[in-house]
C-alpha cells in the first residue's frame, strides 16, 4: 500500500517536475542544503537517534558530502524511502544522493540510468531462523516459508539459491523491515532473509535476540553503496571521492582528532589530502582545498564511522571482516590521492 502510493507520488513528480539541471553542485549550493534519500529506519545504518537526529553509517556518508560541498556536515535534509520507491525518488530529483544500503548491480547501474559511485559496505544475503528449529545450515531449509522484503535483490537471490539447490520454499513478500519482523516473530514464516548486516541490525531489536540464529551461508554478493543520477560527471566525482577520502584518511592514519596536527605532517599525500599542498583538480571539481579536511574533522574517517555505528562497541557488534582496508586484508582498495 505504502510503497504503491509512493510510486504514484514518484510518478506524479515525473509528470509535474521540471527536469533537474545538469549541474547538481550548483543546485545544492543554491539551496544551501544537500538532500539525501535514506532508509526509513535500519539500526546502525540510518535511524533517528534519541534526540531525533538522523544518525548511522549511511547517514555519515551524506554528512561527509555536505561537509565537502558546503563545508558544514549539518546542512543535510533526509528523505526516508522504502526499498521500492528509492530509485524513482532519486530519478525524480527528490534528492541528490541515494545512500540507502543499495546493492550495486548491472541492471540498476545501466538500465535504470544511475551511477553507483563506490562501495561503502560489502555485504551478502543471509538467513535468520528461530534457534528452536534446530536448523544449522541453509541447505536444510527445503519447504520452509521465507519472509522477504519486496523490491530488493534478495528476492531474486532467494529464487536463484533455492532453485540451484533444488529446494522448494514459500515466499512471503513484505513491504518494510518492521512488518517483516512482526510476521517473522508471529511465525508466519520460518526464515527471514536479507543482507547479513540487516539481519544483525534486525536481531538486536528483538526482545530475545539469543532465541534467533543467523545461518553461516552467505548466498550472494551485495556490494552496497551510494548512488547518483546519470549524466552529471562532476557530481558523481564529488560523491565518489568523498567516500574515497574517508578511506584514504583511515589508510593514512588521519582521524577527526588528529587532523589538525596532521597538517604539519611530512607525508606529501597527507599534505595534499588536507589541502596544505595543492591537489591538482580540486578547484576544477568545484570544491575548496579543505574539502577533505572538513570531511575528516566533521564526520571522521571510514574506520571511525564504521566503529561508531556498526563496530564491536555497538549493539550490532559487526567485525570489519571484508570491510577492512586492503592493507589489513579487506576489500577496500582506494586509488591514491595524487
Amino acid at each position: 500500500m505504502k510503497s504503491t502510493s509512493w510510486v504514484i507520488a514518484g510518478l506524479s513528480s515525473v509528470l509535474l517536475a521540471g527536469t533537474a539541471g545538469a549541474a547538481t553542485l550548483d543546485d545544492v549550493r543554491a539551496k544551501g542544503e544537500l538532500t539525501c534519500i535514506v532508509n526509513t529506519g535500519l539500526a546502525g545504518f540510518a535511524a533517528p537517534n534519541d534526540q531525533g537526529v538522523w544518525s548511522g553509517f549511511d547517514i555519515d556518508y551524506c554528512r561527509a558530502v555536505a561537509a565537502a560541498v558546503l563545508g558544514d556536515s549539518r546542512k543535510v535534509g533526509f528523505v526516508p524511502s522504502t526499498t521500492a520507491e528509492r530509485f524513482t525518488k532519486l530519478r525524480a530529483g527528490e534528492g541528490e544522493i541515494l545512500s540507502r544500503n543499495t546493492t550495486w548491480t548491472f541492471s540498476r547501474d545501466v538500465d535504470l540510468q544511475q551511477t553507483f559511485v563506490g562501495v561503502n559496505y560489502y555485504d551478502g544475503q543471509g538467513f535468520m531462523v528461530p534457534a528452536s528449529l534446530g536448523v544449522t545450515s541453509a541447505t536444510q531449509l527445503d519447504g520452509a516459508s521465507v519472509c522477504i522484503q519486496t523490491g530488493t535483490t534478495t528476492e531474486l537471490n532467494l529464487a536463484e539459491y533455492f532453485s540451484l539447490n533444488k529446494m522448494k520454499y514459500e515466499p512471503v513478500p513484505i513491504a518494510t523491515n518492521a512488518e517483516a519482523q512482526s510476521n517473522y516473530l508471529a511465525g508466519r514464516c520460518d526464515v527471514y532473509t536479507t543482507d547479513a548486516s540487516g539481519l544483525a541490525a534486525t536481531k538486536v531489536a528483538f526482545d530475545n535476540p539469543n532465541d534467533h540464529v543467523v545461518l553461516p551461508e552467505v548466498v550472494s554478493k551485495e556490494p552496497l553503496g551510494p548512488v547518483v543520477r546519470h549524466g552529471d560527471d562532476q557530481w558523481a566525482d564529488i560523491a565518489s571521492w568523498t567516500l574515497k577520502a574517508m578511506m584514504v584518511a583511515e589508510e593514512l592514519g588521519i582521524t577527526s582528532q588528529n587532523a589538525e596536527k596532521m597538517k604539519n605532517s611530512e607525508n606529501p599525500e597527507i599534505r595534499r589530502l588536507l589541502g596544505v599542498d595543492e591537489l591538482q583538480g580540486v578547484s576544477a571539481l568545484g570544491l575548496s582545498p579543505d574539502w577533505a579536511y572538513n570531511i575528516i574533522t566533521q564526520v571522521g574517517n571510514y574506520g571511525e564511522s564504521f566503529e561508531r555505528h556498526l563496530g564491536k562497541s555497538t549493539k550490532l557488534g559487526l567485525s570489519r571482516g571484508i570491510n577492512a582496508l586492503a592493507k589489513d586484508g579487506g576489500l577496500h582498495y582506494v586509488p591514491p590521492v595524487k
Partner: peptide, 28 residues
Amino acid sequence: AIAIGYMDIVATLGGITLNQTGREMEAM
C-alpha cells in the same frame, strides 16, 4: 492486497516487476 503481501496484479506487475525493471510509467 499489497498491505499484507497477497500477490495480486498490483503486487506483481505494479510491485516487484516495476521495481526490478524500473518501468514505473509502463507498469502503472
